[in-house]
Design a protein around this nucleic acid. Structure first.
Lengths: 143, 143
DNA sequence: AAGTTTAATAACTATATAGTAGTCTAACCC
DNA sequence: GGGTTAGACTACTATATAGTTATTAAACTT
């Protein structure tokens, strides 16, 4: 079996890297990470913030916890999740740099939508003042 | 239907980031990137190097080209692909840092396998000196 | 104790896509 | 021209998983 041109890097490593990226390749999970950026939250709070179903959310949290991205801390009947290593956000910023063009458009559209609240729902619920961070994450100056 | 709690960051942005990660979340594609690290290659060469089917490979190449990760340059009857922005490898290195523990194990296993070609009962796990270099090996430092 | 609340789990459906086989096109060769 | 080769594309299958509904378990409340 003249096979397997010796890989430059063991396939197993590529798989591990791929698995890690796979976890970050889901909008819902990025949304969860987003929410947790301001601090630990329990499942119910995340449920509300992300609008994900409880079971679905729980599954995502499990995945990310097992991957070491989140930590879980039970407290009474609830469980608080927290970012294990803020370094994950470097990924997102790096990614934003890579897809800058596409992002810039979307960021503009977003800013328009928020500044001129044409109609729709009144937001202000949990407004954490987090939105000002958008610019940091998105476009322009990458640092 | 009071829906859509206004997200801190537009969902569209999270989706764009997720899509980018999704491209890097496949072992085969990482393998391709690996191969291209040493320079442009045509499809046939990649076919041989990665052991992927031609059609499959072509599909992956299309995906990555459309995402701006690769560039395509026809030459005669063949097409040469090239890394568009070496920055992608920063992702991999960053990822390796994140999953270091798991990777370290695999790297050791890999070193064992390569140093003592035949399998048999491998005596020592002397590979420890390498540990800190794991991240360097990953992205394809080989040659 | 019975009743509530919160989160995890199980079972299921629906969708996306990696991989494959076969076909088609375009650039090369004689 | 006819033949060959490289690579893209179409159609298909198989698999993985996001999301949902329903159930279960555990910590609290009274």
């Amino acid at each position: 079996m003249p096979k397997s041109v010796q890989p430059l890097v063991p396939i197993a490593v590529l798989e591990a890297v791929a698995d890690y990226f796979k976890i970050l390749s889901e909008t819902s999970r990025l949304h969860i990470l987003q929410c947790l950026r301001s601090g630990p939250m329990n499942v119910m709070e995340l449920c509300e913030a992300t609008e994900l179903g409880q079971a679905n959310l729980s599954k995502h949290l499990k995945v990310m916890t097992q991957a070491g991205i989140l930590t879980r801390q039970p407290k009474g009947t609830s469980a608080y999740y927290e970012i294990a290593d803020p370094l994950v956000f470097e990924f997102c910023e790096l990614a934003c740099g890579q897809i800058g063009d596409r992002l810039r458009q979307q960021a503009e559209k977003f800013l328009q939508a928020t500044t001129l609240q044409s109609n729709s729902s009144a937001p202000k619920k949990s407004a954490k003042s987090q939105k000002t961070k958008v610019k940091e994450q998105v476009p322009g100056s990458r640092h």
